[in-house]
Design a protein around this nucleic acid. Structure first.
Lengths: 128, 128, 128, 128
DNA sequence: GTGGTCTAGACCACA
DNA sequence: GTGGTCTAGACCACT
């Protein structure tokens, strides 16, 4: 799994980590049972604070996407929280509205969505 | 135009206002030339400070979606900036990944996108 | 002389008028002795307030570029104020710095300046 | 870095600050990665409100010239936006027209531009 | 009467 | 300790 953090950006570091793990799960790079790096290891790799990684992992745990135990963090898509629809739909609406409001044709927007989803649909073709 | 703000939420008030104006433009409730409420009026309606509304309007102005003059704020979709693709696509990827990671089938996600876009595509039939 | 005002813009109307008269003088469209439209006429043409035009003309008078009499406003480049160098240079520095800071090569900036000045140097070729 | 603000002038304080940072970048006093003073520190130095400095920094951030993070503000010329030509050229035209209209010979104006640009071209030799 | 600017002071999120 | 957000109230520029 390839993780990158943009120090000096506007987006909080823990949010960046959380988003990338989510995208890795969506794209199939991480599947049910996949172990995540130890918090201290990951923090050291990025030169960021240990608590920041902890916060990201805790967020993922609250969402039911990972499980934290003494052995470390593992992905658990089985227990994922499925009752997220309403607020999620609102977020989708906002981000899509942004493009439409700026003049991008809806068909073009949909095409982008489809393209993104196709990347998620085909898991694990990164290391031939 | 129906605007709502969620006091006490985690999303900044000015962002909420900005998002709702964007969605109103996308859905055709606000079109090129539509006037927006005066900053102080809107602030009074919501019981928030006029500076907060000011910041939302300023954001929209920076995005080229509205124009501010002594006459008030008016929607100007004509001058909208079309070079926003890269970061926007990243945001789309993140929000769609969230649903896929949580187990929502990609086809279902795409269906939601299409549904949202259809709401935007129908510009408005309020006053036949 | 072709004047345009951008209602609904951020730039004050009187400033827009003043700027356009200055550019017309620089490009030779208006020369020493050229009459300017009557304030009321101009205001009526643009559908703006009479006082706004008055303010623009007064600004030009203060700069010594026009003379106001009962007969109307006439261009008087002869009496132009030549002691404007310091603040003007500062404005030039600021606007040029903006381009350089954003990565435009100085040669390119200078090329733009030269191009603009050439338009001023060749007066009166607009109505063949 | 030498910054000055002219309290009591007609130019907004936040604009003055923004302009001076831009000029500092253009002249090489500030380069990619240079840290800017903390908003509250700078505000205290000038005896102005920290919100004013905040607005100046926010302007620079929007222009892509600096990045704001919890670590502070740092110059980032790398990501500067290059698509600013149209309105910028208009501003150049206005300011140059002003001098020509007032009788300064175009060659003299161009000489000033060249002189200004030379100050920007020499990036800095402070610490040999 | 509109938006723009500035000041002042509070609390929070992030690291 | 940094920037971000919000509130509150004042004065000004423009039309």
């Amino acid at each position: 799994m390839i993780l990158n953090v943009d120090l000096g950006g506007t987006v909080p570091l823990y949010q960046q980590l959380r988003d990338q793990v989510v995208e890795a799960i969506a794209s199939g790079v991480l599947t049910d049972g996949s172990p995540l790096p130890a918090t201290r290891t990951l923090a050291a790799d990025f030169g960021i604070n240990f608590h920041t990684v902890n916060k990201a992992y805790d967020l993922l745990r609250q969402e039911g996407l990972i499980r934290l135990s003494r052995a470390g963090a593992v992905v658990t898509t089985a227990t994922a929280d499925h009752s997220f629809a309403p607020e999620w739909t609102a977020r989708v609406r906002t981000v899509l509205a942004e493009a439409v409001a700026r003049g991008l044709p809806p068909e073009e927007v949909l095409r982008t969505c489809r393209s993104v989803l196709e990347q998620f649909a085909t898991p694990r073709e990164d290391t031939p």
